[in-house]
Amino acid sequence: MSNPIIQPENLVYDKSAVLTDNVMHYCPGCSHGTVHRIVAEVIEEMGLQDQTIGVAPVGCAVFIYNYINVDFAESAHGRAPAIATAIKRLNPDKLVFTYQGDGDLAAIGTAETIHACNRGENIAIIFINNGIYGMTGGQMAPTTLLGMKSSTCPTGREPHLNGYPLKITDMLALTEGTCYVTRQSVHTPSSVKKTKRAIRKAFDNSLQGKGTSVVEVVSTCNSGWKMTPVEANRWMEENMFPFYPLGDLKDR
């Protein structure tokens, strides 16, 4: 079993020291874990573990504070941008970010999100869009695609019954206060690298006072979608990306 390559001096990749050893409660293959991991990596690389205040959402990522080893405030559902607004204004030297799902950011917290962005609060918003409510068991989200099934649109989303999927990130790019708005994913090694660069840029912007940065991560919820993790990644490429195309929407 002893492999001569497996020596401390040869270690090239490991989970960040800013990520705790707690096993994450997420389902196997959940995108949340990957995004948590790279958020921790970015904080470690920036040397800002002691200067970071995160704002946790309500939704699957409610326990993010058990996994990323920085100070956190746990928000009411959708209010994270309001909480982050005050944290940053009262502690302007700190790195302040919110981490929110699609229900949190694009349904119940729409007002807080849009107004924080429009004020140009110097915060980073990390937005996980998997088109479904994970925590509560797979209900329709504002971002659920037309025809996509959920427990509250069991035969698929129909516009006359359920309205249309909301491209909220496009709306946020229109607000004057945002400096950087991008849509990424974490399903392949290269997409993970791109998302990590995007989060780094968003965090840099927060510290430089350039305005609000929004990093949407188009994600999977394989349990909610009722697929294997690998199938979910493929389904996301085929169905989510055409409606939520990846790339920068704004960078200034």
């Binding site: 205040i53 405030a73 009411a76 909480i83 204004r89 009262l90």
Partner: peptide, 26 residues
């Protein structure tokens, strides 16, 4: 002292929550 007009009372009380969470007098 920071003074901010929020978009709603829902936002303003949550801003207070955020400020208080950092130990500030808000």
């Amino acid at each position: 002292m920071v003074v901010l007009q929020a978009e709603s009372e829902v936002a303003s009380i949550n801003m207070v929550f955020g400020g208080a969470a950092t130990g500030k007098k808000v």
